[in-house]
Design a protein around this nucleic acid. Structure first.
Length: 577
DNA sequence: TCGCTTT
């Protein structure tokens, strides 16, 4: 713990220009809950890292500020002094006209959905619920659910919870888009348990035989985390919620076991394997939920998804998709799968949380990355830090290099590791034992490590979605966070798109980046073919001086004085994705 | 595009 303090340095950064109002509000009500290291109270650290203490007490209220009020695009007047608000209009042209917008920036209190712009679209959209109590009264939620919510520190519903839950509770299909760390999991678990009413084993249940709800997630770690959340919400009742694995799947061969299951949380392929072996029927499933929906609809997962959907033959099946990002093509696929869905968007679509301070760092070439990172670690930093690489070997060897360089408590996590190794790594992360976690895309989505101070994109993300999800591992539940992205000369094709995301979240990037021409498809293709180096060992051989020289050259020729661009209309372009 | 994820 002492070492934590040695490593730490005070101060969190906000983008105070753009989100002054949110920041003020944040500081006013939450000054007490700054990073423990900054106040030197190392003993508090485990609490902020502890997933299960998420959202308790003060933290719980903070969570409600998550996302800090994105300005309403249809309410240009809301903050008349702020030019950028008006210009956001431009980003919205694609939106359909019949949607309703309920925004609320005037009501400057702590009720969370009032910190977000929420737009809904669809026929007969159910009313949002301001509080969990309102939800309970309107839909007869059990007192058990309500008390479990408050026991776990959920005080007010977040935007997606107050809008999404009524839609699901009225049996409607749902497309939900809400930023990282804004409580999507609870927004579907709460209504699902409420709709199931009682465990299948309870007396007089007319639930029929077999599992009634399925939650799909793209990684084991995320499924595990969702399962934990299920357990929290169902404390004190005999719900049978199964985190699907080889072992639990094998147990299904016993029909008596099979028929007692209320809900399965699983990755798609695991479920498909059980379907194909005939050990499981989904004919009684009434709730099918896709977490990280755009990822689940990717080409690798989609055949499995189709098979699962086809196996859910119950006439009253409700389907819902959730993600922080949903590109148009994925949304189209989702919409085709759903019946008369309601679409809810919290915040500005595909825009990261404003409380994440984002920056781009030029590192010339791959060989300059490690020296740059070591320089970073030679200065005081706030752990834990999550580092993303593009491949498994690069994650392993970077972790090794950091250990060899004397960095403390370095961990590594990628899907090439054994199940146990992965579980141990996540567990160390949850306990706060990892200060530096080097990982691949496997950690990019959904994982909720509350304490993560900083995300470093050591390798450049290849899609905007990847970028948004990766940096969304920090700044969760209303906390602040920092995201640094290394870029090299070969990252050109993607650079501008990411820069646009940063601008969109109201932060600035060097002007020369925004002035880059949009690379042609041809060019992008060529650059995409450029081979990325296999390991950081190779990277190491390349001297650092070259990198510095090159950086200076670039600085001289291209880089101009960094200017506040967030309000500069010219630079406000719609991200290309 | 590629590698990432999923038994």
């Amino acid at each position: 713990m002492e070492a934590f303090q040695l490593l730490s340095r005070g101060g969190v950064q906000f983008n105070k220009n753009r989100f002054k109002k949110d920041v003020d509000l944040f500081n006013k009500s939450e000054s007490k809950s700054k990073r423990p290291q900054t106040s030197g109270q190392g003993s508090e650290l485990p609490a902020t890292l502890d997933f299960f203490k998420y959202a308790q007490g003060v933290e719980g209220k903070r969570k409600n500020n998550a996302g800090g009020g994105r300005p309403g695009k249809k309410r240009k007047v809301a903050e008349a002094g702020d030019k950028a608000e008006v210009e956001l209009e431009e980003d919205m042209k694609e939106d359909e006209t019949q949607e309703t917008s309920k925004s609320d920036i005037e009501n400057d209190n702590n009720i969370p959905h009032q910190r977000h712009r929420v737009t809904t679209k669809g026929s007969n959209v159910p009313d949002f619920a301001e509080t969990f109590e309102a939800l309970r009264d309107r839909y007869q939620l059990s007192s058990n659910l309500l008390s479990n919510l408050s026991k776990n520190g959920y005080v007010y519903p977040t935007g997606i919870q107050s809008y999404g839950a009524p839609i699901l509770l009225e049996g409607r299909d749902l497309v939900a888009i809400s930023p990282t760390g804004t409580g999507k999991t609870v927004s579907y678990l709460l209504p699902t348990f409420a709709s199931l009413r009682a465990p299948v084993t309870s007396a007089g249940s007319d639930a029929g035989l077999g599992v009634r709800a399925v939650v799909l997630a793209p990684t084991r770690e995320l499924a595990h985390q969702i399962h934990n959340e299920c357990l929290k919400l169902t404390q004190g009742r005999k719900w049978k919620i199964v985190l699907f694995s080889k072992a639990t799947a094998n147990a299904l061969s016993d029909k008596a076991v099979r028929d007692k299951i209320d809900m399965i949380v699983t990755t798609p392929l695991r479920l498909v394997a059980s379907l194909q072996s005939g050990s499981l029927s989904l004919s009684n499933v009434r709730h099918l939920i896709f977490d990280e929906a755009d990822r689940m609809l990717d080409k690798e997962f989609f055949p499995q998804i189709e098979e699962i959907v086809a196996a859910c033959t119950h006439s009253k099946i409700q389907k819902a998709v959730f993600s922080a990002t949903l590109p148009a093509n994925a949304e189209k696929i989702a919409m085709d799968m759903l019946q008369d869905p309601v679409r809810v968007v919290v915040g500005l679509k595909d825009t990261p949380l404003p409380l994440i301070t984002q920056s781009l760092t030029y590192v010339a070439d791959d060989g300059s990355k490690l020296p740059s990172l070591l320089t970073y670690f030679s200065q005081p930093y706030n752990p834990p830090v999550l580092i993303f690489t593009s491949t498994q070997p690069r994650a392993s060897s970077l972790a090794e290099e950091l250990v060899l360089s004397g960095i403390s408590n370095v961990d590594c996590l990628h899907a090439g590791m054994s199940k146990k190794e992965r579980e141990d790594a996540v567990s160390r992360m949850r306990k706060g034992e990892s200060w530096v976690m080097v990982s691949t895309e496997v950690m990019a989505r959904g994982m909720d490590f509350k304490g993560i101070q900083e995300v470093i994109n050591y390798d450049f993300p290849t899609t905007v979605q990847s970028y948004i999800h990766r940096i969304g591992r920090t700044g969760r539940a209303g906390r602040s966070g920092k995201a640094v992205t290394f870029f090299t000369d070969t990252d050109g094709p993607y650079l501008k798109a990411i820069a646009n995301v940063i601008l969109q979240s109201g932060q600035s990037v060097p002007e020369w980046i925004t002035n880059l021409p949009k690379p042609s498809k041809m060019k992008r293709k060529q650059m995409g073919k450029t081979k990325r180096p296999e390991t950081v060992n190779a990277a190491r051989k390349i001297g650092r001086n070259d990198a510095i020289k090159k950086r200076e050259m670039i600085a001289g020729s291209k880089r101009r004085k960094i200017k506040e661009l967030a309000h500069d209309k010219e630079s406000r372009t719609i991200p290309q994705y």
